[in-house]
Design a binder for these strands. Sequence first.
DNA 1: ACTCTGCCTCAAGACGAG
DNA 2: TTGAGGCAGAGT
DNA 3: CTCGTCC
Length: 335
Amino acid sequence: MGIKGLTSLHLMGFFYRTIRMVENGIKPLYVFDGKPPELKAGVLSKRLALRKEAQEEGEEAKETGTAEDVDRFARRTVKVTREHNEECRRLLGLMGIPFVVVYAAGSEDMDTLTFHAPVLLRHLTFSEARKTPISEINLDKALEGLEMNMSQFIELCILLGCDYLEPIKGVGPKSALKLIREHGNLGAVIEHLREKTAAKEDAAKDEDGKKKKGGIVVPEEWPWEEAKKFFEHPDVTPAKDVEVDWTSPDVEGLVQFLVTEKGFNEDRVRKGADKLSKFLNTKQQGRLDGFFTAKPKTEPKKGKETEKGKKGTKRKADDKDKKDAGSSKKSKTKK
DNA sequence: ACTCTGCCTCAAGACGAG
DNA sequence: TTGAGGCAGAGT
DNA sequence: CTCGTCC
């Protein structure tokens, strides 16, 4: 009716999702991408995977970060306007949830490990729904499994292709690992590759066009050392300069905003606020259990592993050959 | 033996009643 | 729509 | 689990 249509989907998303996380012992820290407004919002959902932070049980309990941008594509083309962002921030403020605005929150996957995140949780986004168990990648174990030190690991990741440098074509997981192992460090690897390339060029000159694109070519401009420094000395704003405290929610403020202004159901809002204050004040003993579906519906092949300290999943170097006759049921139906 | 590219599939909200 | 993972087939 | 509401 008079209610302003279905606005505030974004607020609902933030509100309920945040409560849900808090209930499960996760203290979210929202990271807003301080990018031009145009950047499609949908992309941001990907950032969900960004929440790789260290969510140990009670241990490091304090540090938990979550990058997230809610919006969903509800009713198609839901643009995240500046207003939406501002409202979200306002909401978070009232909820007592900290947030920061950054420029380029980099990566996902491996990169986070190179930034020394002790633990990386992958597939958080869709693991619940699908069979994929949430994988927990432990940095120490990964290093152990790869038998390399942090420096080498970082270099390996750079070789594999990070977000800051062009990947070197022709070098995949296998070669990268092999190269690093053989040469010990990226510098030597690059040198090696360049020599090879140079040799080829000479050959090409003499022979006048043989196999011009022989092998792996390292771009002329490939400042991997800088990239490495960046990984080792991440960025600009030291964690200490960022204030991240989870305070009690401003209940009346929330009511005013969500109920009065946005037409939310007051009971729900208050109920949610209760949960927030309750869990934020309590020593959160919660853990990820319960936040995720811990039971595989049809019991696939492996046990689940929502637990921690399980396996140190190695990165790419572990390929399994899976034959499994082609289940080619591809239908070429296009729309 | 590896790597790359293209194609297909999946999911993107939460909660509660029945 | 978008992005990500999985797979198959081609290319080096 | 499916479905309808929330706003």
